[in-house]
Design a protein around this nucleic acid. Structure first.
Length: 104
DNA sequence: CTCATGACTTTTT
DNA sequence: AAAAAAGCCATGA
């Protein structure tokens, strides 16, 4: 069973459209917290890879970071959605980053 | 409750 | 530039 924190991460992540990415820090901040470390943990325990696009989450440097199914796999998935990588980094990172709306 | 762990991030070597 | 250390937070034992 996902904890409320994890559920919040997944709900938020599901709002990210294909072709865009987000960061662990952004998710945490959107939740009004700074638990980016815990966000990564939540992704790791992602119970629904089919519903939750956990591959659209990269680290602060626009890099893949770790990924339970392998970094190469993650990068391929993102490239299929239109994301471009160069030297292990997302091209025009800030421009493909999804901006979460202010939470009511 | 205390301890260890990790899909993180930033600072310091 | 690359590696190590430190700071942080939720989670499970």
């Amino acid at each position: 069973m996902p904890t409320p924190f994890q559920q919040a991460c997944y709900d938020l992540l599901m709002k990210v459209p294909a072709g865009q990415v987000t960061t662990y820090a952004d998710i945490a901040h959107a939740l009004g917290s700074k638990a980016y470390r815990a966000v990564g943990t939540a992704m790791n325990k992602n119970p629904n890879p089919i519903i939750v696009p956990c591959h659209r989450v990269v680290n602060s440097g626009g890099r893949i970071g770790n990924y339970a199914f392998g970094g190469e796999r993650k990068q391929r998935l993102l490239e299929q959605e239109g994301i471009v990588f160069e030297q292990g980094r997302v091209v025009r990172f800030e421009q493909v980053k999804f901006q979460f709306l202010a939470h009511a």
